[in-house]
Design a protein around this nucleic acid. Structure first.
Lengths: 344, 344
DNA sequence: GCTACTAAAGTAAAGGATAAAGTTATTCCT
DNA sequence: AGGAATAACTTTATCCTTTACTTTAGTAGC
């Protein structure tokens, strides 16, 4: 019933050659004559040979595999990142082992250990919101496994490869634009501070406000995560207190979606009654009404840099010096935050 | 500089025991006394031992790994599927090797070969829109590798494990609901017919129309894919021809998004001027105005069945009989397709 | 005191592929 | 002709772990 897989040995026996000759021929090794190589390849194809990757990796001490650890999948940002990374890996003949921490520190640690055990050639990781113990990363370094932090990076990342978005600059860009339109009463629904993206986006917001001498209303600067509920609840709270700003800068687009929902529920119209802009781009923003403006962070660039770094690090090994890359942002203006309504 | 990984042998040498004893102890084999087992585990921990999964898999002829092939990642439906599958795998101590075909037949084939080469214990696959050559799947079967088709399944799936959504029933449910509201002029922006979900959804639409004796306007039943552009373009075409229906049933939610965009562009209001309902649920539908009603297909159920089948198939091997599972759908009513506007 | 059995460990081989070093046979150079 | 260089293979060792079988010592039963 079950067909046994064809091995190098099977081919070798059939052709009365040694296993190694087969192996070399299939890898186009110059040791083997063109004629023999051709013959071997034909027969291998005919017999339906597929290499045993486990055996190959074990023997070659190289897996052509990169581990990827992300906190979430069904999320536009990470979905795009993953897609890009997979694409680049495919182009470079690498396999990706994707693992998902679901924002859980224990899972993250377990996944990293698994990746080490699988002998991946390198690891790209976006840490969870709560990662505070970095000993595992030191261990990875000591093992000599190339490592790149992407987007979500630890506080002390010196000596590590990092690729991140210019969160602070992006936030600054957005707020500066809003201020130039005439906005003064600006709120920031911010993310958690223990993660760089939360801190930096807030910092950019504050920087812009300060630069233009605008007062920051404490009750308008909140901290509460990255999800729809947070946006919805915070908006509702301010609405009930009759304390709404003119513009809200949301830390992520789901937070902005929560705001859209709340606004529509209480009959306030965006962008006339209250305006919104957010950090992070997603396709759906085009289909909202009004289409949501945002600070775009290029997942392509992020992924490209991360892959380039990891591949270079894998190739050069000891001779490689870790780099810190910061990717620039773009302000994408659609139907919000494009004019200041004086009659508010 | 680089720390060499600790192997069973290293522990064995340190303790003056044989490698096998260490291996057995770490796997709680009854051959080894409790005392020795404890000692070995302590030392192993101390030395920072991590098993070499390549070697283990090679030796044990089992990888505890399931291959997953999907056409897309950054897509709500597949994103959710993947997330669910990963979750279930984690709970069952399996690893997932995810590969993405990007709707390309060649990539799909290559990925399947890679998964075979990696000696995964089973494969779950959602085929591309264009997969017509199924010989590779026969090969997988002959190799005795458990296989489950999920959501997107081949035409002739007898003898294979399949898990799919009741596309026809779901479509029927939606159209029947609409007809009961009073709708008569209903269009269907359908998907490609060479894939089951395209065919079946259309069949459900036609079935409902026929059951209630409604005429099907040929120019309202189109075939063109699953993306935003298709929805947008088709709507615009009908609009220019002054040939818009009262309700459009979109084959996917991106198609519906395209319709939303087009409608807003030409100043038509949903759901009063023209109404929409679609197949497929996504979080963002709640944040559109009006919130988009749809036929919900449970990714949890789909994934759960697929994983259960593959795990059972892996365990029972030869004694296993392939199953065909059909998952039911739910009509989720939000802001569209909830009343029929007579003044149209 | 002898056989039978069990507990706890060890030995050898297998698993499939690759790296490094070794073997022929042939060609080339002077 | 003698020696080096090269082409085309083969041999052997290695990667690390597991499986199947064997050994050894000690205990129980009669």
């Amino acid at each position: 019933m079950k067909e046994k897989a064809v091995t190098l040995n099977d081919i070798a026996e059939k052709l009365n050659l040694s296993t190694v000759t087969i192996s070399k021929a299939l890898r186009n090794h110059p040791d083997i004559s063109l004629k023999t190589t051709k013959l071997i390849k034909t027969i291998a194809e005919e017999m339906g040979y597929t290499p045993n990757i486990m055996a190959r990796n074990l023997s070659a001490r190289k897996s052509n595999t990169i581990g990827l650890v992300v906190p979430k999948i069904a999320h536009f940002f990470f979905g795009s990142i993953i897609e890009c990374v997979y694409d680049l890996a495919f182009q470079n003949n690498y396999e990706i082992i994707l693992t998902v921490s679901q924002e859980s520190v224990e899972r993250e640690k377990k996944h990293l250990q698994t990746l080490l055990a699988m002998k991946v050639d390198g690891i790209i990781v976006s840490i969870t919101q709560e990662t505070t113990d970095f000993s595992i990363f030191d261990m990875i370094e000591r093992r000599g496994v190339p490592l790149v932090f992407m987007d979500r990076i630890p506080e002390i990342a010196n000596g590590y490869n990092t690729v991140r978005v210019d969160d602070r600059g992006g936030a600054f860009k957005a707020i500066e634009h809003a201020i130039n339109l005439g906005y003064k009463n600006i709120a920031h629904f911010g993310g958690y501070h223990n993660i760089n993206i939360g801190r930096e986006r807030k910092a950019g917001f504050l920087e812009a406000m300060q630069k233009y001498g605008l007062e920051v209303n404490e009750s308008w600067v909140t901290e509460g995560g990255f999800g729809e509920n947070y946006g919805y609840d915070t908006f509702m709270k301010l609405y009930r207190e009759n304390n709404l700003p003119d513009l809200i800068f949301a830390v992520t687009y789901p937070v902005a979606l929560g705001i859209y929902m709340a606004a529509s529920e209480v009959g306030l119209h965006i962008p006339d009654d209250i305006d919104v802009i957010c950090f992070g781009n997603a396709k759906v923003q085009n289909f909202l009404s009004p289409p949501l403006s945002c600070v775009d962070q290029s997942t392509e660039l992020l992924s490209k840099h991360a892959m380039e770094m990891i591949l270079e690090n894998i190739e050069k090994r000891e001779d490689y010096e870790p780099r810190q890359v910061v990717v620039d942002t773009n302000l994408v203006l659609r139907g919000t935050c494009i004019r200041f309504n004086k009659n508010r």
